[in-house]
Design a protein around this nucleic acid. Structure first.
Lengths: 185, 185
DNA sequence: CATCGGTCTTGTCACTGACAAGATGCCCGC
DNA sequence: GCGGGCATCTTGTCAGTGACAAGACCGATG
């Protein structure tokens, strides 16, 4: 092992995600992440100012990945329901990211990178809503907020185990059925 | 101050809620709660086995209060939209409770009291959905899940500041508009 | 009024996050 | 090809934390 790690920043992010997947975001310690990554307890300092900065970076990465997934779903000609499905599928396939994204207080909400990533995801979802609302005279902001609330809440409930789901097909099916409960214009 | 506090358990809950309101659920320490309550650092042990137990009790109390609010909204002849409004109003008027209720990993999800309180809230909301679905042939489970997701997600987004709201009237209005986006049977 | 059991205290331990100061080795100019 | 500069990583340290143990206190029960 060389003295200089090579890409410790990425390694710390991956190691943290692994630990979060096992123990949840609140129970993870910086020192444990450092141990798992094979570096000293103070090594993370040079890549993340403090624990909050690490978790904030993970949250930002999560929102960015979510935005990518939403964009892809929209690009492949999907309607609004497909965006909803993509949202829920992201949450279930990236549980550690999603847990950090919705953990109150663990991240620095005013971080520019985090805000930008959230804004990007919001925009992607918003564009799907606008297609959904084509030709409507309803308040698009309200519809967007309803859609955002619906998929965010659904993903949360599924991850909390409130909805027993076996396969990915189940998830897709439930997500599609739930988004269908949104009233079209 | 008497040696025996009187009702230290309630005092600890209240003090913790106060601290959570200021710093968020993740940043609160048992020792600080004990200090604020004017007792020694080990006093909470006899009322809550550990930190998780305290937060779990707060979450259970939150779900219970939410169930009460939903029941009251239903009792006063409200339709489903009124239940949605009550849900969001609860979240904004009890932010500390709600933050703990949706904090992943800080509570013991399999606690019997917590499970019972959640189930009670779920049942109250479910009964409102059933009135909403009267005469429908749709899958009521899906509608209930959609409704639950919608109000839970909306409350979360409002508390995260994603929706700028000034007054309680604003909150009621937005909650009513968003729940109206649910498709009736 | 004695004792018993729950309540609260003091004392302690390993662990954590943050900071400081020193060791290491890669990169750049010469 | 080589020497200095500097980001990277290390060891060392400190106050604060959660959890446990053992003892002090006191009210209720007999």
């Amino acid at each position: 092992m060389p003295y200089h790690h090579g890409d410790l920043r990425r390694a710390l992010l991956d190691t943290a995600l692994e630990a979060i997947g096992e123990q949840g975001p609140a129970a993870v310690s910086l020192r444990e992440v450092a141990r798992r990554a094979g570096v000293s307890h103070a090594a993370p300092t040079h890549h993340f100012r403090d624990k909050t900065a690490l978790l904030t970076a993970i949250a930002a990465e999560g929102w960015s990945l979510l935005a990518d997934a939403l964009r892809e779903a929209a690009a492949s000609g999907g309607d609004f329901a497909d965006l909803g499905v993509a949202y829920v599928v992201f949450a279930t396939s990236h549980p550690a990211h999603f847990a950090v994204m919705r953990a109150p207080g663990l991240t620095r909400a005013d971080d520019p990178e985090l805000e930008a990533a959230m804004e990007r995801a919001r925009t992607e979802l918003r564009s799907g809503v606008e297609r959904f609302e084509a030709g409507s005279t309803r308040d698009a902001d309200t519809t967007a907020l309803a859609a955002w609330s619906l998929v965010h809440g659904l993903a949360t409930l599924i991850l909390e185990g409130a909805v027993p789901l076996k396969t990915d097909a189940d998830i897709t099916e439930v997500a599609r059925a739930v988004t269908a409960r949104l009233r079209p214009p």
